[in-house]
Computed example of a mutant assay.
Amino acid sequence: MKKIRLSPLYGNIMFALLLVSIYAIPLQADTLKDLKISISMENAPVRMVLNELEKETHLTFFYSSQVVNTSKRVSIHLRNVSLNDALQHLFAKTNITYRYSGRQIILERKRITVGDLRKIPRKVERKNSSPGREWSFCAAVSPA
Rank of each mutant, 00 (worst) to 15 (best):
A144C: 07
L27W: 06
T94H: 03
A139P: 05
K123W: 09
T113F: 02
I120R: 14
L87K: 00
A92M: 07
P45V: 12
I4G: 01
F62S: 08
I4E: 05
K119S: 13
V46F: 02
K72F: 11
A139V: 12
R133T: 15
V20G: 02
W135R: 15
S65R: 07
V81G: 01
N12S: 09
P26W: 07
Y23N: 08
I13S: 04
E42S: 12
P26R: 03
M41K: 12
S129T: 15
L9I: 07
L50S: 03
G132S: 09
H58Q: 06
S7G: 00
S7Y: 05
M48G: 06
D85G: 01
K72R: 13
Y100G: 00
I22M: 12
F137P: 00
G11A: 14
S82D: 07
S7K: 03
Q28H: 09
S21F: 10
K33M: 05
T70R: 09
S142T: 15
V141R: 11
S21V: 10
S38G: 05
C138G: 08
F15N: 07
D30R: 11
H89P: 00
K123D: 15
L50E: 02
I106R: 01
P26K: 04
C138M: 13
A16Q: 10
V20A: 11
R47I: 01
S75L: 05
E108V: 00
R109Y: 03
P131M: 06
H89Y: 11
S7F: 04
R73Y: 07
A86M: 05
T60C: 02
R111D: 07
K110Y: 01
C138T: 14
P131H: 10
E125A: 15
L78R: 13
R118Y: 08
R103Q: 13
A24K: 07
A140T: 15
Y10E: 05
N43C: 05
S142E: 14
T57Q: 00
N69S: 12
L32F: 12
K55M: 09
R126G: 09
Y100K: 09
V20E: 03
N51A: 06
R109S: 02
G11R: 15
E52F: 03
K119I: 08
E52V: 04
D30V: 11
M41G: 02
E56C: 00
A140M: 13
Y98M: 04
Q88T: 11
S130Y: 10
